[in-house]
Design a protein around this nucleic acid. Structure first.
Lengths: 146, 146
DNA sequence: CTATGTGCAAATCTTTTGCAGGCTA
DNA sequence: TAGCCTGCAAAAGATTTGCACATAG
């Protein structure tokens, strides 16, 4: 019974991962599915670094090379499944949520989390220089533990 | 006459650079003064990368090692004379303006410029999680040439 | 079968560090 | 003079690339 529920959970995650890949027209190879399951298997949004995702995969027993994790994350971004978020300078973060939204960055743990979009209200934005248009507005709220 | 004006300009920049260092209690060594002059010699704000500042120094004929540029920029930040701005991930930017203000980032040229603070108005900010306080809010407006 | 992916190691790029020698106060 | 700085080279990370092999459609 327990085992059955677990199996169902696993297949559901797999299905979700594969569907996610399919949405972008990416071939569901073993490694991609493994990483996709880690990223969107539970339906939640995730913020990962390449190293972090690689560690998760190892922990799960998935056989993936670190270079493949890098390449795959890059491929997911190119396909529009994820977006890269720059907050640290030494590390790249990848976000499964692709719309524009603010982030919390915990300076002590280097952890990145979503901040509710609905609670951010920018009532006035600097005038955009002539000949340019806004590609994106990044808002990062850096937090310190009190 | 021209030469005289130029000399005055040079001494004025030097004086400004040395005063800037003095404000932070940093010893005005040859290299630090050279970099300080490049950074604040004309009284304007500047956004530089280590490589970029190094190139400027070389162009001016200043003898500084690249490692020293890195170390010195780091020292200037620690002393509160500059702040690091993260926008690119592959490169660190250093800003001579140390207050909190939004930036324009030109995606095509990787150039970073100030956006007028007065024109940014955030009327509502996401609630800060319990046990945390805001260290800083970074706003980067990414621009695309039209 | 054939085009795409992947693994691995080596290369690349940015930034930091260690240590001997130089320069400021 | 004493201690802080700098130069240089080497190290350290993070990420990318090249190429032979594997695999999905």
């Amino acid at each position: 019974m327990m085992a059955e529920a677990e199996t169902q959970g696993v297949t559901a995650s797999r299905a979700r991962g594969i569907a996610w890949l399919g949405r972008a027209g990416l071939r569901p190879t073993r490694q991609r599915v493994a990483l996709a399951v880690l990223l969107v298997g539970d339906g939640c949004n995730r913020h990962v670094t390449a190293e972090g995702l690689y560690a998760d995969a190892q922990r799960r027993g998935d056989k993936v090379a670190l270079a493949t994790v890098y390449n795959t994350l890059r491929a997911f971004c190119d396909a529009g499944l994820m977006q890269e978020v720059t907050v640290d300078g030494t590390r790249s973060y990848f976000d499964t949520r692709t719309d524009q939204h603010p982030h919390f960055y915990w300076e002590d743990t280097s952890e990145l989390t979503d901040a509710p979009v609905s609670e951010l209200e920018i009532s006035r934005l600097p005038a955009v220089p002539a000949g340019a248009e806004i590609a994106r507005v990044d808002v990062v709220i850096r937090l310190r533990r009190r």
